[in-house]
C-alpha cells in the first residue's frame, strides 16, 4: 500500500566513503512520483556515486534511502544497522531500472532476449508473456525490427535504446540514468535523448546524471547541483541556470557549454 503523500524516493543524510575518503557528505533529496530530476556537477562531485547508491550498486555507511517508504539495502535491528540479505536486495533492485553509460547489454543475447531476461528470471513470467512485453517496449524505443539482432550488430545509440527498453520493461517505479549519452558518437546522442524525453513526458519518475546541459534544462522538473559530496543548490532549471545562487554553480555553468 503506497501512501500517495510519501515521496517515491527519499534520501536522508546519506553518507558514503570509499575507504577513508568520504564522497557523499550528508545528502538529503526527495523525489515525488512523476518527477524528473537531474544531477549535475563536475567529476568527483559524487553525483554518479549517489545514483549508484539508490539501487545499491554502491553501499553506503550512513543515512537512509527509502523507495516508496521502504528502506533500501539496510535495516535497523536492535539499534544495529544490518545489510539486508541478497535476495531482498535483488528484489529491491528490480523496483528501479538503470541505464548505464556503457550500455552493458548482454552480448550473447539478442535485443529481445536482453529485454526479456529479467521478465522471465526475476518476474518469473512465461515466455509468451515476456516476449509480448519485450516487443512492446522495443517498439516504443523504435527498434522492433532489430529484435533478433545481437548487440554487436547494433550502433551505440541503438544499443542504449535497447538497454533503456530492458530497464523499463521491468516496470520500475524509478528510472536511473547514469550518463546515458556520454559514450555515444555525437550523431547518435539525439535518438537516445528523444526516447528519454518521451518517457519523461509519459510520467516516468527519473533521476538522471548527464553532461548534456541543454537536455537537462528541457526535460527536468528540477536540477540538483552537487559539489564535493554535497548538494550545493537545487531548483527548477530556469532558476538554476539563469539565476545561480552559489558561486561554484556559476563557475560550473560558465565552464560548461550551454
Amino acid at each position: 500500500m503506497t501512501d500517495s503523500n510519501v515521496p517515491l524516493l527519499s534520501i536522508d543524510d546519506l553518507h558514503k566513503s570509499f575507504g577513508t575518503v568520504e564522497v557523499l557528505k550528508g545528502i538529503d533529496l526527495s523525489l515525488d512520483r512523476g518527477d524528473v530530476v537531474t544531477l549535475i556537477g563536475s567529476s568527483g562531485s559524487g553525483k554518479t556515486t549517489l545514483l549508484r547508491c539508490v539501487n545499491l550498486l554502491e553501499d553506503f555507511q550512513g543515512g537512509s534511502i527509502r523507495l516508496a517508504g521502504e528502506a533500501i539495502g539496510y535495516r535497523e535491528e536492535g539499534g544495529r544497522r544490518q545489510r539486508l540479505p541478497e535476495r531482498e536486495i535483488a528484489r529491491q533492485r528490480s523496483l528501479t531500472g538503470m541505464a548505464f553509460q556503457q550500455f552493458n547489454l548482454f552480448p550473447h543475447l539478442t535485443a529481445l532476449e536482453n529485454v526479456t531476461l529479467g521478465l522471465r528470471k526475476v518476474k518469473k513470467m512465461g515466455k509468451d508473456e515476456a516476449v509480448a512485453i519485450g516487443e512492446q517496449w522495443l517498439r516504443r524505443v523504435g527498434l522492433i525490427e532489430r529484435r533478433d539482432y545481437h548487440p554487436g550488430q547494433l550502433s551505440g545509440g541503438q544499443q542504449q535504446r535497447v538497454a533503456i527498453a530492458r530497464a523499463i520493461a521491468m516496470n520500475p517505479s524509478l528510472m536511473l540514468f547514469d550518463e546515458p549519452t556520454s559514450a555515444l558518437d555525437p550523431e547518435l546522442v539525439g535518438e537516445v535523448l528523444a526516447v528519454i524525453k518521451d518517457l519523461a513526458q509519459d510520467g516516468m519518475t527519473m533521476l538522471l546524471v548527464t553532461h548534456e546541459m541543454r537536455f537537462a534544462y528541457e526535460v527536468s522538473d528540477r536540477i540538483v547541483f552537487m559539489s564535493q559530496g554535497r548538494i550545493e543548490e537545487q531548483g527548477p532549471p530556469r532558476e538554476l541556470f539563469e539565476r545561480p545562487r552559489s558561486t561554484r554553480l556559476a563557475e560550473f555553468l560558465g565552464r560548461t557549454s550551454f
Binding site: 539501487n55 550498486l57 541478497e86 535476495r87 535483488a90 528484489r91 533492485r93 528490480s94 523496483l95 528501479t96 531500472g97 538503470m98 548505464f100 556503457q102 552493458n104 547489454l105 548482454f106 552480448p107 550473447h108 531476461l117 529479467g118 528470471k121 526475476v122 538497454a163 530492458r166 530497464a167 521491468m170 536511473l176
Partner: peptide
C-alpha cells in the same frame, strides 16, 4: 567487463542468476 554484472544486478537478478545466464555463457 564489470558492467555486465552491474546490468544484471540492476534488473534484479540474483548473483547466481547473473553467473548462470550472463557471465558463464559469455
Amino acid at each position: 567487463p564489470k558492467g555486465q554484472r552491474e546490468a544484471g544486478l540492476a534488473i534484479g537478478l540474483r548473483e547466481w542468476q547473473i553467473k548462470a545466464y550472463v557471465i558463464i555463457p559469455v
